[in-house]
Design a protein around this nucleic acid. Structure first.
Lengths: 252, 252
DNA sequence: TGTATTTAGTTGTATATACGTTTAAGACAT
DNA sequence: ATGTCTTAAACGTATATACAACTAAATACA
């Protein structure tokens, strides 16, 4: 690299990095490439030297920026091989977006889905609050029954914001899960979970083939994407056949 | 600092850092000081220059080591002020060690505890497996009723390994919670949580003053410390008055 | 006494350089 | 086709230096 004038600290002229230090610009650049999807999981990103040329920075500056991202788990670096986009961080079991499909398959069992209903609805006040839309707005509503080896395990009662997923009703939910479709539709930004034990209502008792007196373990989940409530789901499970477990090693 | 001979990479002579790079030695040193309790939360640690002298390293080497620890959340660094030991990382709501006392107080309510029983027991096969001790071993057993503003909210049914906390039975659980006592007894290493919805048994219905048909939200928790199962607890909550909620922003 | 101002100390950022370590791919011989 | 060797490329670690930015305490001043 040619000798270059000392740059004025904290005074950067780059088009997309106003006010950011060089290292921060590099960081932002990498995160933007990943967020935009241009660089995907496992992709190799440009080498330190290439980025150093591109940003007119020294290799050490690039090195430290990438190193930080590696410590944070965004990148994986392999000496001699290169720098790669890390696999998305797994969340802890409870807060993980529990995907009934993967869950069942991980146990080596067969997952099937019955579509109970799939329709447009207009929301009432309560639902409008829940989905953060205007009362009376159109929403998509699906009710599915998930089975493990034929045995009912979960009723998925879901409302979807059409603005988030306009083609939600056109999918074949015997083939993919709404979860899969929605995850492919937009980036997950925030999740809210509420766990409750409730008495079984009639629909649950019938669809889930529950014994009298057996309560329901209800998981309510709202997810945010692109700044809106993308979907709100109620997941009903038979208390006698379903529990949620998580184990964690305490940090430090 | 005096000019010093180039050190042979990866060949360190320090007493407690055999085979570790300089940066790793610094890292290990800092973590050891924190783990041993010599440096506590909020303490200011030696400056980069002091550590550089101490390790006969350049300030940049120290800087990068401390910077990494800051990214990981072990340290907090304030330009101009110094480097401090960070507060212990909070865990996410679900997996957080839910402490009924803080939970109630955070809502601005009054927490009281009834001691239902507190005794020595000898464990059967199932309990021995659960606590990972020999069948017939002595265990401590406590049953407490936690109230929020006088209203029953949780039955805490707990077994404790005497080897972990020999003085468990001598505490006054109307004043402190077992949770507080146990946390002060040893470092938390691992936690297992299982959440279930179960029909209310007679004891729960009575103690928790539950309506007929109201199910119990049961949280089972085992914690490991110093390599053993320190305690196993069953926390019973009235389904109609209790839910667990958690909200998280998705990483990245 | 109370308020600015200065100053020493500390971290933040960046560069240029040097050499070690690891990986993957190509060359080559078998 | 297979295995070995070489080599270029990529990351890892460390140093010395320079200056910017910030903080807290000391100092000067009104």
């Amino acid at each position: 690299m040619n000798p270059k004038a000392k740059r004025l600290p904290l005074e950067s002229e780059s088009s997309d990095g106003i006010g950011l230090s060089l290292g921060q610009q590099v960081r932002a650049h990498v995160l933007e490439k990943i967020d935009s999807g241009e660089w995907r999981e496992g992709d190799r990103i440009p080498s330190e030297s290439q980025l150093a040329d591109q940003f007119d920075a020294s290799r050490m500056t690039i090195h430290i920026a990438l190193r930080d991202l590696a410590v944070e788990g965004v990148l994986v670096r392999r000496q001699g091989a290169g720098t790669f986009v890390a696999a998305r961080r797994r969340q802890s079991t409870f807060l993980e977006l529990r995907n009934i499909h993967s869950e069942i398959e991980e146990r080596g069992n067969r997952h099937t889905t019955d579509v109970i209903s799939l329709e447009r609805v207009h929301c009432d006040m309560g639902l409008a609050t829940e989905m953060n839309v205007a009362p009376g707005s159109e929403l998509y509503h699906s009710v599915l029954l998930h089975r493990e080896n034929g045995r009912p395990l979960q009723i998925e009662d879901r409302f979807v914001n059409p603005r988030f997923s306009p083609d939600f009703l056109e999918q074949d939910y015997t083939q993919i899960t709404p979860h899969q479709h929605l995850m492919a539709t937009g980036p997950l930004e925030e999740v809210e979970h509420i766990i409750q034990a409730v008495p079984a209502d009639e629909r649950s008792r019938e669809l889930l083939v529950m014994a009298p007196g057996d309560p329901v373990l209800l998981l309510r989940r709202r997810t945010w994407s692109r700044g809106m409530v993308a979907t709100s789901a109620r997941l009903y499970h038979p208390g006698s056949r379903f529990s949620m477990a998580g184990r964690m090693v305490v940090a430090r």
